[in-house]
Amino acid sequence: MSELPWYNRGLFSNLNLRQKTILTIALTGLILLIIFISGLLTNANLPTDFSIKMQPPSFQHLFGTDWMGRDMFTRTIKGLSLSIMIGLVSSILSSIIATILAFIASTNKFCDEFVSWLIDLFASIPHILLIMMISIGFGKGAFGVMMAVAFSHWVNLTRVLRAEVLQINTSEYVALSKRFGKSKLWIAKEHILPLVLSQIFVGTLLVFPHAIMHESSVTFLGFGLSPHEPAIGIILSESMTYLAMGAWWLAFFPGLALLIVVLLFDIIGDNLKRLFDPSEANN
């Protein structure tokens, strides 16, 4: 079992593969949930105290303080929580788009060609450019970013689902269902949806890390959330001003925290995929 990733080796080697996978998912999910909830519970208006501004990391302020004397650890958690929320909404939205498009593609040849054309079109535009354009189009802010990330991340899942639905549609049980006089809508709902549900679920989770990264980068570039919102992208772009003055902690800890969260989501997605379809995970 040498192809197993590092986080599935060692520590829990007495459990079987399935148990380990579930344990990994549960632990990772718990960490993310804690970050998310504690971010929600903290007050956005942190006390400003100019007497302790720009302090490097210490035991009192784990991640240091910024130019207004705000605790960077609290700001980071708050920012991550916001990122997770935006990521959640936009990945669910992108999965809904993917599912609808895949079913539209299955109705007839013309629709199928239209969806394929749409896929090729969106796949040919660089993500970050697409996100910036859509975000501006929707008036930036949290709503603009969610729409932008959702409308740029449906492509892969749509491809997978379209192929899957196509294959199910040629099966004998679907043909028989039509002979029983069932409508296309009924067949889509009762026959096809249950068979692609796990794929939709995994697809949603796999989009999550991308959604978070892209939200932060587009915000960092100034095309996303507005500067008064406590987002990681805002924190990072602010910190650029102070980096030259040696305030490295303003960028380092929030950046690292963001990377860790993204990695955790990646781990969940990977493991879920392994859990639902062990054979496919090896490709």
């Binding site: 049980y173 028989l176 026959h191």
Partner: peptide, 18 residues
């Protein structure tokens, strides 16, 4: 509903596995 019903040689293919 189609009044002529076919019963297949391989029943397992005519049933949704889920």
């Amino acid at each position: 509903f189609y009044p002529v019903q076919l019963i297949f040689q391989h029943p397992e293919k005519t049933m949704n596995p889920k």
